[in-house]
């Protein structure tokens, strides 16, 4: 899932300062899962902005809407006929969602209310961790399904570095050292031998030459 966090209120306020009629659009998918852009968060942000405007003696009209997915046309289309009535749109989608909205409604003034952060996993309630960098060349099969590109601070393929302490990463001692995890898990599986091989430099070109795309002939109309 794509994770995101709300931008500081100051920044959001700055973006919408010139406008009075604002549509806040949430997204019911990834950012709802990570509690940053779902229906509830839309409500919270709307509430906060209304109170804020009132305190500053500003008039503001806010409409709240949350669509299932902000990156899929069929869902975005639900905004047709509504979005036009607003001076500005605050999107609580990820970067992909914001751009998709803007593409479909090129005239609308669309602002991001979130900072899109990473692709990750809900580790436990209230904790999300990054675990995929979308490098386009997945090697998880070799590393006991722990991604060294993402989860090792230095993206080592022939780790660990010398900085691991108590099983944690020197860069963020709160996080486990990915290589420690890889070695432990491979050892449990009796597959530590996999690491004897020296991994050649990664072909980062798969991570893209410019923006990436996926083309599936079988899926296209």
């Amino acid at each position: 899932m794509i994770t995101a966090v709300r931008k500081p209120m100051e920044e959001i306020r700055g973006m919408i300062a010139p406008f009075k009629k604002i549509l806040i659009v949430g997204c019911g998918t990834c950012v709802a899962e990570c509690a940053s852009g779902g229906e509830k968060e839309v409500g919270l942000l709307a509430s906060a902005l209304r109170i804020d405007a009132k305190n500053r003696k500003r008039e503001i009209e806010i409409k709240e809407m949350t669509i299932d997915r902000q990156c899929v046309y069929e869902f975005i289309d639900q905004l047709t006929g509504i979005i036009e009535n607003y001076e500005a749109v605050l999107s609580l989608g990820c970067g992909a969602g914001v751009q998709a909205l803007a593409e479909i409604f090129p005239v609308a003034k669309i602002f991001p209310a979130l900072n899109t952060t990473f692709i990750g996993q809900t580790k436990e309630p209230g904790l999300w961790i990054e675990n995929c960098r979308a490098c386009g060349d997945c090697k998880l099969g070799d590393f006991a399904a722990i991604c060294p590109v993402t989860r090792c601070s230095k993206s080592l393929f022939n780790g660990p570095c010398g900085g691991s302490k108590d099983g944690n990463c020197e860069v963020d001692p709160e996080l486990p050292c990915a290589w420690n995890l890889i070695i432990t898990r491979l050892e449990e599986k009796g597959e530590l031998g996999r690491l004897e091989k020296i991994y050649e430099p990664v072909d980062w070109s798969k991570m893209g030459k410019g923006p990436r795309k996926i083309m599936r002939e079988d899926q296209s109309i």
Partner: peptide, 8 residues
């Protein structure tokens, strides 16, 4: 935290 951000 949220209301603090809007100056309350």
């Amino acid at each position: 935290n949220l209301i603090e951000e809007i100056g309350l």
